[in-house]
Design a protein around this nucleic acid. Structure first.
Lengths: 242, 242
DNA sequence: GAGTGGTCTAGACCACCCG
DNA sequence: GGGTGGTCTAGACCACTCG
């Protein structure tokens, strides 16, 4: 049942990784402390050093450990809120934070892409896009307006889906285009009349304006969205690496 | 001169990596295209497969390639502006974009940390922090105000440095605390009188407000900064991953 | 079944850092 | 010099995907 490269069906580098992670979470290994050397771990687990390295590398990518050449591998100080780096959607986010989320579809139609949208989605100008405009409410208060565009060619049936209770990303994954990354540009703007009306705020009040392009696993752009967020109800946290 | 694990002093996995990168940049390998299998590459370069894998893995981390189990390794569609994900500082950024940058120090003093700052920097309340307030100008126009706080305990000599022509991160690295990551929270706000005056804009105009905590390699928080960016002159681009 | 990536080994030598 | 991570080998078997 168990193949030679696994124990209990779990790859060895994952066993090492999870064992180390547990030691860190349970304060067996403390922040700043050196963990056992790769040779020691290899000996202790009875795995080869390359396998140990793979497990450690995963934790380094996660930011839980860091290596210093010629010195050792150490536990990172755990200050950082590690999430918020992740691309999550409105419904997921609300669930995590225990907020009652609601999505109201304002517009759902199909139209030819304008220049800006076609560029972002790598389409010819005028190629059809699905346009979904939504208002998002948290605990009953409007916080965000989304103007989303997705290529009709890739998702011709998107408008038949339940867009108020499921996020389009779920459907994108089902259609074979799992969402993988996004690039977003933000700036501060004043609310115009339409935005102010929908978000229930004064004209001229500050909003966080955001343009976002979302890409699937293979790099295909699958969504371009203009977002308007209430300045006083919405903040965005991101992590950057050097 | 050349050690057995290198050729021309360059590690083999880096040779493979850069060779593949060049092929992608020069469109020898096109977006969506399958690259040669790991076995083929190993044969072609005369390196072992594990070494080839290491080179490929780097490019996957960069987002240039992606693997599909049992199928192959493919070139990502190159839409994404890959940088902007990186933590860069004002001076570096300006240099890249060819903007003439200037930093004006408004305040540089030492004082006890208030609650917010002490929390972010993991200090006791009242512990000393260095406070550096700067105005940043791009091509002569003010765009950003920074209110930065760094732990006095770690960088007692920071105020002796040339803060207008060098970024504090350079000194942090020299002191053994290389900057590695940051978490920042953003929202849209209105300019108050002080901010409006310094940034040469109207009171009530939209600004992009940002709080940032910067961490060094080992996870120590080394800087906490309040940033006020002109809404009409400044936008921030970030990448997120799922 | 053929081809591909995923995992793993049991070694090896090197470069780096520290006392 | 001794310990550490960095790089590398020449194989191996497995799991997955596709035609």
């Amino acid at each position: 049942m168990t193949s030679p490269n696994k124990t209990n069906g779990v790859p060895r580098y994952i066993q090492i990784r999870e064992s180390l992670r547990e030691d860190i979470l349970n304060s067996v290994l403390l922040p700043g402390q050196k963990i056992p050397s790769e040779d020691e771990l290899a000996l202790k687990f009875g795995f080869s050093r390359m396998t140990v390295r793979q497990g450690i590398s995963d934790l380094i990518d996660e930011g839980l450990l860091y290596r210093r050449n010629g010195v050792g591998t150490f536990v990172t100080h755990p200050q950082i809120v590690r999430d918020h780096t992740r691309l999550t959607n409105f419904l997921e986010n609300a669930k995590i934070k225990g907020i009652e989320a609601k999505v109201q579809v304002l517009i759902a139609d199909i139209l030819p892409a304008k220049l800006r949208v076609s560029r972002a989605l790598d389409l010819k100008e005028g190629e059809l896009v699905i346009h979904i405009k939504t208002l998002r409410l948290a605990n009953g208060d409007p916080v965000t307006i989304h103007d989303a565009y997705v290529p009709y060619r890739i998702f011709p049936l998107m408008l038949q889906e339940d867009l108020e209770n499921h996020h389009i990303w779920e459907y994108m994954e089902a259609y074979g285009f799992p969402v993988k990354r996004a690039v977003q540009r933000m700036e501060a703007r004043e609310a115009d009349e339409e935005i102010a009306g929908l978000l229930n705020m004064d004209v001229g009040a500050p909003i966080l304006y955001k343009e976002r392009t979302v890409y699937s696993e293979n790099g295909t752009p699958v969504e371009f969205t203009y977002c308007y967020n209430r300045g006083d109800r919405y903040s965005l946290t991101v992590a950057l690496f050097r």
